[in-house]
Design a protein around this nucleic acid. Structure first.
Lengths: 139, 139
DNA sequence: CCAGATTACTTGAGTGGCTCATGGATCCGT
DNA sequence: ACGGATCCATGAGCCACTCAAGTAATCTGG
């Protein structure tokens, strides 16, 4: 009685599994963990505080401290006290960090490859379906 | 020049992110890690050897040794030498393990909820798109 | 203006997941 | 029966993650 999951559920699982594995490999190819790559990605839009990073990455602040420490020791991010509130640390990505981030992005071919197998119309359709699945408030 | 990724890429990322987070929470609610839940899932189809599990989970055999050890110590799986080849250990899920696995499955509402926001026709369409994205050999 | 609560981050201890290198046991071909 | 291959376990080590406690800066009320 282990309800055998619909084929669609299985397809979703497989897709996510492949997506995750591909991201891991892409990050690792740049000498980063997936978590480190995610953190760098957060910073490409501008500097953040430690707390903002913790919120974005859905994890503890002390975890961010360590992630940033490792990235900082490799010169991929900088961590400076905010002049306006000296409790706050502003974390920014360095040019070297940006290079690593781009390397990960380039190596992460999975989504582009997947999407490229669809026609433009199918891509639009997929986008619509994803949007509808996401919304908690129905269509 | 950090090519701003298409909206569809972002949607895929968000979907996978939500999927992963939901699975983690579902597993944790049953006192399991995601890796442990995946391992149990592999065993619901019948017993496996350590090596088969390592292949299925895309990880090192020694990692499986530890995962199985923890699950075994909690009575969720058993590990017995294969009578035909005593190098091989056959890992099987116990009734208690099956209960935990079902608990995770029940708590993992994300895919069902997402898919349920689509009509039957849309679900079929999504299935077709996923299949087409997966295939390395084009349509 | 200043004591106390609050905020933002760090530190330390502990758990797990993961890998690599190594080792022991078993199996198989010659 | 010997030697190589196979399957798994063990140990060391890294990283991600969490929780509890600590420090420093800021805010707040009397």
């Amino acid at each position: 009685m282990t309800e055998p999951s619909s084929p669609l559920d299985q397809q979703l699982w497989d897709f996510v599994y492949g997506y995750d594995a591909a991201y891991d490999r892409a990050a690792q190819q740049a000498g980063l963990s997936a978590a480190q790559a995610c953190l760098l990605d957060q910073l490409t839009g501008g500097s953040s505080t430690m707390g903002e990073l913790a919120t974005a990455l859905l994890c503890d602040a002390s975890n961010v401290t360590q992630l940033v420490a490792r990235l900082e020791s490799r010169g991929l991010v900088t961590r400076e006290p905010d002049p306006a509130d000296r409790r706050v640390k502003r974390v920014s990505i360095t040019p070297a960090g940006r290079r690593e981030h781009r390397a990960v992005h380039r190596a992460f071919a999975f989504p582009a490859e997947s999407v490229d197998r669809l026609t433009a119309g199918e891509q639009q359709l997929l986008s619509r379906l994803l949007a509808k699945m996401r919304r908690p408030g129905g269509s």
